[in-house]
Each structure stands twice: as structure tokens, then as C-alpha cells.
Amino acid sequence: MCYALEMEQLAQKASRHPQKVLSMYVNTDPANRDQTGGEWKIHVKNGLKNFEAYLENDADEREQFLKVKDKVKTFLEDNSQSMKKSCVFFASADGIWFAECLQMPVATEFFWETEPKLDQFRSLYKTFPESGVILVQKNQVKVIDAVLGKVRETKLYEMDLDTEQWKVQASPQRALSIKGKGGKGSKKDTIENRIEANQKRWYKSLAPSLDKLAKEREWKSIHLVGNKEEAKMIESYMQKQVQHMEGKNLFEQEERKVLEEVIL
């Protein structure tokens, strides 16, 4: 999903649809001190109840609102066990529907107006558009494709030392590691030397795949993370511009933790 296109389509739909739109931003972050007891549920209940009371003397508009309210409540109930830091809704009774749970906090707001209130959503998207985080570690490269703090996909590229071809593992559960015991003259020591001797050539062969992925996933921002020499090596072979480079070892970290460390 391209969120920039989604926002444009929401605005266009609203201009063609005569009915009002509910715009709702709900902070559900359990780390927020105001949310320790799930207070967001009370905010949602009260916010929707206030609109219902306000529309008491307009039967047609109230009926429209109740349809939207039921749909929003169903979404929240269905996703109650997988809440993240926020939920964002844009909905009307005549067909507008957008609902997402995000890993980015929002300020809780409710609107019932003739067009969707996209300002806060646009601000979130500007902070974290479609992005690629490329983590480098010797003969392994992990790529996290994300937007709005949400991981869309993770790929692990590992150089097969026998065929000298990059193997791709989509959504890896864990990173692989170089096997063999350490020590001078050991098998692991020999592998390390081989990697060091061939790293430039191997990274050069991987760079076109990273450029292709950046184009396909419409990355607005690319982040390289890992050993600085290795990261700079990959950057030098990529055609796409890298916006940010960080010399940290986050290769084994959970994807969400990586995003929090690098972007959020």
C-alpha cells in the first residue's frame, strides 16, 4: 500500500461523497502513562457517544453515524489483541473506509465533518514514509521494508560460500551465522579471511538487487546500519541515494527494535 496515494484517494472520495466522514485518531500506546489501564477504550466510547448525542435531532445524519460507529467498534474488537501504539480511522456510511493500527503514537482526536482530517496522518507519513533499513554483517545483509513504523517485509540475503551466489530468505525468523569454531588456523578463521577477501565483489553483485527492491517498494528513505566500512562499501555500489548511515550492530535485534533505534 502506498499511503501517499491512499491519502489522495481519501480526499478525492470525500469530494464525491455527500455524507460526512469520521476521522478518528486513537492513542493506544501501553507505554504511555495515561494508557496503563487501557484508558483509550474510555476515550473512544465517550468520543463516539458525544457525536451520537450531538446528532440526536438529525435522524438521517445520526443513522449514517451509527453505521460508521458499528464498523469502527467491530474493527477495534477484532483487533483488540494486536493493538500497537495507535489506531487511525477515516470512515463514512457511503463507502469511505480506512483503518490501520500503527507502531507510531498519535494525539487522540475525533472529527465528524464533510472531509477527512488528514493533517496528523500526513505528519506521521512525512516522519516515516516508505523506508528501507539495510543491516550489514559480513556475508549477510538483512533488509527491513517498513512504513509508518510498520514492518511490511523482511528479507535476509546470505552469500553461499560454495556457489558464491546470494541466497534470499523472505521474513527470516533469525539471522544465520558463520559456523565453525574460532582460533588461529581454524575453519572459521579461514572463512573470515575469505569473506574479507571477497566482500567488495560480493557486495557489488548484491547492490542491483537492493536498488530494484527500493524502486519496487517505493522507498522514500534508505538507512544503512552496521560496520561503517561495510555499510560504505554497499553504499558505493548502489544507484539509489542513502539518506542515513549508522554504525551500530543491530543485526540480531527484532525488526521493531531496529526501527525504534534507527527511525522512530
Rank of each mutant, 00 (worst) to 15 (best):
residue 186 S to T: 08
residue 264 L to P: 03
residue 220 K to G: 12
residue 230 E to I: 00
residue 250 L to E: 01
residue 27 N to M: 03
residue 247 G to C: 02
residue 44 V to P: 01
residue 211 D to E: 08
residue 215 K to Y: 02
residue 28 T to Y: 03
residue 96 I to S: 02
residue 135 L to Y: 04
residue 40 W to E: 10
residue 161 L to T: 04
residue 128 F to W: 09
residue 250 L to N: 02
residue 75 F to T: 09
residue 209 S to F: 11
residue 4 A to C: 04
residue 104 M to E: 10
residue 100 E to G: 00
residue 98 F to Q: 03
residue 184 K to C: 02
residue 59 A to T: 05
residue 57 N to H: 15
residue 208 P to E: 10
residue 94 D to Y: 05
residue 79 N to P: 00
residue 213 L to D: 04
residue 222 I to K: 08
residue 243 Q to M: 08
residue 141 V to L: 09
residue 153 E to V: 05
residue 250 L to A: 04
residue 141 V to Q: 08
residue 203 Y to D: 11
residue 169 Q to W: 03
residue 235 E to R: 14
residue 171 S to A: 11
residue 226 G to K: 11
residue 224 L to V: 10
residue 176 L to F: 06
residue 131 S to V: 05
residue 197 A to P: 01
residue 88 V to L: 12
residue 138 K to H: 09
residue 259 L to Y: 00
residue 54 Y to G: 08
residue 140 Q to S: 13
residue 161 L to Y: 02
residue 76 L to G: 05
residue 99 A to E: 10
residue 90 F to I: 06
residue 236 S to V: 02
residue 8 E to Y: 06
residue 42 I to A: 11
residue 64 Q to P: 00
residue 155 K to G: 00
residue 140 Q to E: 11
residue 223 H to P: 03
residue 86 S to P: 04
residue 78 D to M: 09
residue 264 L to Q: 14
residue 214 A to M: 07
residue 234 I to C: 00
residue 148 L to N: 07
residue 157 Y to K: 04
residue 216 E to Y: 02
residue 51 F to G: 06
residue 173 Q to T: 04
residue 226 G to H: 10
residue 97 W to V: 01
residue 52 E to A: 15
residue 225 V to F: 07
residue 143 V to Y: 02
residue 262 V to S: 12
residue 247 G to D: 13
residue 120 Q to L: 05
residue 89 F to M: 04
residue 52 E to S: 15
residue 67 K to V: 04
residue 17 H to A: 06
residue 157 Y to S: 04
residue 44 V to G: 03
residue 177 S to E: 14
residue 79 N to S: 14
residue 153 E to G: 03
residue 218 E to G: 01
residue 32 N to M: 00
residue 13 K to W: 05
residue 44 V to M: 08
residue 50 N to F: 07
residue 256 R to C: 10
residue 95 G to R: 02
